Lab assay of single mutants.
Amino acid sequence: MEVRTIKVFTTVDNINLHTQVVDMSMTYGQQFGPTYLDGADVTKIKPHNSHEGKTFYVLPNDDTLRVEAFEYYHTTDPSFLGRYMSALNHTKKWKYPQVNGLTSIKWADNNCYLATALLTLQQIELKFNPPALQDAYYRARAGEAANFCALILAYCNKTVGELGDVRETMSYLFQHANLDSCKRVLNVVCKTCGQQQTTLKGVEAVMYMGTLSYEQFKKGVQIPCTCGKQATKYLVQQESPFVMMSAPPAQYELKHGTFTCASEYTGNYQCGHYKHITSKETLYCIDGALLTKSSEYKGPITDVFYKENSYTTTIK
């Protein structure tokens, strides 16, 4: 009895394709271990004539594949690729409408935090270190965002349907971005203890939790000093293409032309909904596939993004 075979390709990165001759009487799992086709788990399936010449994702289970996976995804987590594939199996079914010149995501599976993050990423200057993220990001900007969303979920250790947080998501993504040249110098002034300067680099240099107003941050924000008295913390120097200011959701007025974009969060910790506000020729609110415009805006804002380049204080 002759062994019926077909020729397929296996890959971990969709760049390096490895030619395989597979036995049609055995499952993919018996031949390769966990195997995925377009995100779908085909591990328990036997090869079919229609699979001839198709590319299958496999887990990096030998040295060659491990090197290829690390170079593309910059992670050695053995569960990463499987999590990416199972997320992709959902995100490829989502709709990605162009809204006001940006790629958004039609609401499904509690994905409003991903839509808000995706919209924000198209408006701030950011370059990702893992080629996987950078490639998928370019495709997302062009309207094909399924891979990018699935990668975000995998890097953030999230599953489809789980509630997510924009600030946490951005923080994970910033860790995989090139923020080497970003720098922030802060000064804390206390009447009792004097003053202390701190220099922050990388992710810490672009994120701040405690106030939404970048102007206020430049002037000074009140913080408790270690001595128990009130101290003032203010920005001395900022070198970065953008800054992200966050605070627990509270009524906040966004003035046209003073910011790049913002995240609105309605609801409580267990259950809520994100919308995205962007400042173009007027203010726009993007909620999944829905767009509304207004000249002014007041609502429960939790993150505001500002364009920056270089700032030095005039406070002496």
Rank of each mutant, 00 (worst) to 15 (best):
R4E: 13
T5R: 12
I6T: 10
I6D: 00
F9G: 03
T10L: 11
T11H: 05
T11M: 03
V12R: 15
I15T: 10
I15S: 12
N16L: 12
Q20A: 12
V21L: 13
V21A: 12
V22Q: 00
D23Q: 12
D23N: 15
M24W: 12
M26Y: 13
Y28T: 01
G29A: 08
P34G: 13
Y36F: 13
Y36S: 02
Y36A: 02
D38W: 11
G39E: 09
G39C: 08
G39K: 03
D41S: 10
D41Q: 10
D41L: 08
D41H: 03
T43C: 10
T43D: 06
I45G: 14
K46C: 09
P47N: 00
S50D: 14
G53Y: 12
G53T: 10
T55L: 07
T55Y: 06
T55I: 11
Y57E: 02
V58Q: 13
N61D: 09
N61V: 10
D63W: 07
T64A: 10
T64Q: 11
R66K: 09
R66P: 08
R66F: 08
V67H: 15
E68F: 07
A69L: 12
F70R: 14
E71C: 11
Y72C: 10
Y72H: 15
Y73H: 01
H74L: 06
T75V: 12
T76V: 08
P78N: 15
F80N: 00
L81V: 13
G82W: 10
R83I: 04
S86E: 06
H90S: 13
T91G: 00
T91N: 00
K92G: 05
W94Y: 00
K95W: 09
P97T: 10
V99N: 02
N100K: 11
N100I: 04
G101M: 07
N111K: 01
C112N: 07
Y113A: 03
L114D: 02
A115L: 03
A115M: 15
A115R: 01
A115D: 00
A117I: 15
Q122A: 02
Q123N: 03
Q123K: 02
I124L: 10
E125T: 09
E125I: 00
P130V: 12
P131R: 04
A132L: 01
L133N: 01
Q134L: 04
D135C: 07
D135L: 08
A136G: 06
Y137M: 14
R139I: 07
R141D: 00
R141W: 03
A142H: 15
A142S: 13
E144T: 06
F148Y: 01
F148R: 00
C149Q: 00
L151A: 03
L151S: 05
A154Q: 07
A154L: 00
Y155W: 00
T159K: 10
T159H: 14
T159M: 04
E162Q: 08
V166N: 11
E168C: 03
Y172P: 02
F174D: 07
H176T: 03
H176F: 12
H176Y: 12
S181K: 13
C182N: 04
R184W: 08
V188N: 04
C190M: 01
C190K: 03
Q195Y: 11
Q195D: 10
Q196F: 13
T198S: 12
T199Y: 09
L200D: 09
L200R: 03
G202I: 00
G202W: 01
V203A: 14
E204P: 07
E204Q: 10
A205M: 01
V206R: 04
M209H: 15
G210N: 05
L212R: 07
S213Y: 01
Y214G: 03
K218I: 05
K218R: 06
K219E: 07
G220V: 02
G220H: 04
V221Q: 06
V221I: 14
Q222G: 14
I223V: 15
I223P: 05
T226G: 14
T226Q: 12
T226F: 09
K229L: 11
Q230V: 10
Q230M: 13
Q230R: 10
Q230A: 08
A231Y: 02
A231E: 04
Y234K: 08
L235H: 03
E239Q: 11
E239G: 03
S240H: 05
P241T: 08
M244L: 05
M245R: 04
S246H: 02
A247V: 05
P249Q: 06
P249E: 08
A250N: 13
Y252P: 03
E253Q: 15
L254C: 04
L254D: 06
K255D: 03
K255H: 15
H256D: 07
T258A: 11
T258I: 05
T260S: 08
C261F: 05
A262P: 03
Y265T: 06
Y265M: 15
T266Q: 07
T266G: 10
N268V: 15
Q270K: 09
Q270P: 14
Q270Y: 10
Q270N: 12
C271L: 15
Y274F: 15
T278E: 01
E281S: 06
E281N: 06
E281W: 00
E281R: 04
L283Y: 01
L283D: 07
D287P: 06
D287A: 03
G288W: 01
L291W: 10
S295N: 13
Y297W: 09
Y297A: 03
G299A: 07
G299W: 02
P300T: 11
P300H: 13
D303E: 05
Y306W: 05
Y306T: 02
K307A: 14
Y311T: 06
T312N: 07
T313S: 09
I315H: 15
